[in-house]
Design a protein around this nucleic acid. Structure first.
Lengths: 137, 137
DNA sequence: GTCTTATGTGTTATGATATAACATATAACA
DNA sequence: TGTTATATGTTATATCATAACACATAAGAC
């Protein structure tokens, strides 16, 4: 059922490490900046590593930020959804089965066949909501 | 309740027309290309018009495509969700109240306060699903 | 009327994100 | 050993988006 796949290359593993240890999503160019000391000099290398990680369900792209995060439930294939704090930048991944069902059902009504879903919620996390009443920072 | 706002400028109206009559989402540069004949020469003008239209709920940005569509329910403020056919490119906007409730509830559990939600479903529309069994085109 | 404010546009330049195309290298395996 | 799949290097370029500043105009305050 689960297709075998090669182990990660060192670049791929490095990118995953960087994403995992970051407090916030990183852009491909953030990653490139961090990898230059290690001999990676060009965007394609980074994008290819990200592609691999995403294919394996080890990382996600946040579409509304053009940035990437490590998956917090590696190898689970549920719909990943994201709560993005526009104040502190922290992104929280969550999964909700009912939500996924409802999304499939609603879109499928018209005969649409879903292959990929993006759910991104912007706002303020609990911590930031306290001191962010209306003003944007 | 509904804040008054100026009428659209001619550029803004033109951008909205172009989006409305397009079969698919248009990028800012697609729009710019169409507007060059009409004297619009630079990206900022287009982005500004789009910004205004989005602020007024007359257009939406599709994050996963970096492109824009006219809103099909202007001035309604519900969560807009999108089904995007990766075969023919057609984007269908839909609204589902329960979905919105569930999203708010799930993200709000942890004290998160949502201000904006992005829901984009990629796949194949009914028409394309017929002749797209596995192959991507 | 004219001052002020908010809004929109023009213009130039640049920043930020992403991929095309082709060459080279290496591991797995028939 | 040849073949295939995968990863990387390298150069160049495509695509998407905004900064900064100047100028124009409409609406309301006075």
């Amino acid at each position: 059922m689960m297709s075998a796949s090669r182990p990660l290359s060192s670049t791929q593993a490095r990118v995953l490490e960087l994403l995992s240890s970051a407090a916030k999503p990183l852009s491909a160019y953030d990653l490139l900046g961090m990898l230059r000391e290690e001999g990676v000099n060009a965007p394609p290398t980074v994008y290819r590593a990200l592609e691999r990680l995403m294919r394996d369900g080890l990382a996600h792209r946040i579409e509304s930020l053009n940035a990437f995060v490590a998956c917090n439930r590696p190898h689970h294939s549920e719909l990943a959804s994201f709560a993005i704090c526009d104040h502190c930048g922290v992104v929280t991944e969550f999964t909700d089965h009912d939500l996924q069902m409802r999304l499939s059902a609603v879109s499928g009504r018209s005969g649409f066949h879903a292959t990929r879903m993006t759910v991104e919620i912007h706002g303020h996390c609990a911590k930031c909501a306290d001191h962010a009443h209306g003003h944007a920072h």
